[in-house]
């Protein structure tokens, strides 16, 4: 059974007013448990709206969303339960920190779930470990942390709810390369250990190509593609028409192919490209 299933969802903002705008139109897809999904699309393609629909922050104008086989709006009173099961890390999550200590801030979600002190403590520490929040930061004020440290604390606050599905909206925005790589590695590790579903929204094709199993491409409120990373990026021309790019490394291989060199162009990382070129040139390196 799929963990998330969207059936013809549509969302219209300000229906009936002069501001009426269709943000999402007839989007359907299924996501299996344990998948790592990348979501790409230019600004205004409906990514953010989609993400907020999946955990019930927005209610679809039409269509249904199933979480573990159950329509999330079946009992509107229990929508908070859905929010605990589908955790969202919004863009620049550090701006949502508010508690006196990092510990209390991470505990905010679990506390709202009504867990016992011991359970909360366990969840907070586990979440802190996943995102690299150090023990000694826990009793500090979140406002005394550096930018990157705040980001980790904020992400831990969502992971601490132990959601079935974790959605991250551009978690690496504004981080430097080291911070970005470290955070992505932590997310990958979290995914590997917890074996639950992760949805990652990003503008960085390089990052998405490296870690996503499947990629959902959004365009003007519609689903443009949903396929494996290799298949999506092999449609480079189409992506460009949607205002998206392919990773630079894929682009290089595509250009080579266009020049008449029959290399495999389904290449997503520098390592793959390196191996492909070495193979093409006839085996081992020359040293």
């Amino acid at each position: 059974m799929s963990v998330i299933k969207a059936e013809g969802i549509k969302l219209v903002y300000g229906a009936g007013t002069s501001f009426e705008k269709t943000a999402l139109d007839d989007v359907s897809f299924e996501i299996e448990k344990g998948e790592f999904i990348g979501i790409i699309g230019h600004t205004g393609s409906g990514k953010s709206t989609l993400v907020q629909l999946l955990n019930g922050l927005l209610k679809p104008t039409a269509g249904r969303i199933f979480l573990n086989g159950k329509d999330i709006w079946q009992e509107p009173k229990k929508i908070r339960e859905v929010r605990f099961k589908v955790g969202i890390v919004f863009q620049y999550p550090e701006y949502q920190l508010f508690e006196e200590t990092v510990y209390k801030d991470i505990a905010f979600g679990p506390k709202n779930m009504g867990l016992s002190e011991e359970e909360i403590d366990e969840k907070v520490r586990a979440a802190a470990a996943f995102t690299g929040v150090r023990e000694e930061w826990l009793q500090k004020s979140p406002f005394d942390l550096s930018g990157g440290e705040k980001r980790r604390a904020a992400i831990a606050g969502v992971i601490a709810m132990d959601p079935d599905v974790l959605i991250l909206d551009e978690p690496t925005a504004g981080l430097d390369p080291l911070g970005r790589d470290a955070l992505l590695a932590q997310i990958q590790n979290y995914h590997a250990v917890r074996k639950n579903t992760v949805l990652l929204v990003s503008h960085s094709m390089e990052d998405i190509a490296r870690i996503a199993d499947r990629i959902l491409v959004m365009n003007h409120g519609k689903k443009a593609m949903l396929d494996t990373a290799a298949n999506v990026f092999s449609r480079g021309r189409e992506l460009e028409e949607l205002g998206l790019r392919v990773p630079q490394i894929t682009k290089i291989m595509m250009l080579l192919k266009e020049k008449g060199i029959s290399v495999n162009e389904n290449i997503l990382t520098t390592e793959q490209a390196f191996n492909e070129i070495i193979n093409y040139l006839g085996g081992s390196s020359r040293i």
Binding site: F274, I278, R286
Partner: peptide, 20 residues
Amino acid sequence: HRLDVPQATELNHKLRSCGY
């Protein structure tokens, strides 16, 4: 020093240091 290089630069560099 925790800095990135473009993927093109990195691939070129890797192959070059293999003697190509």
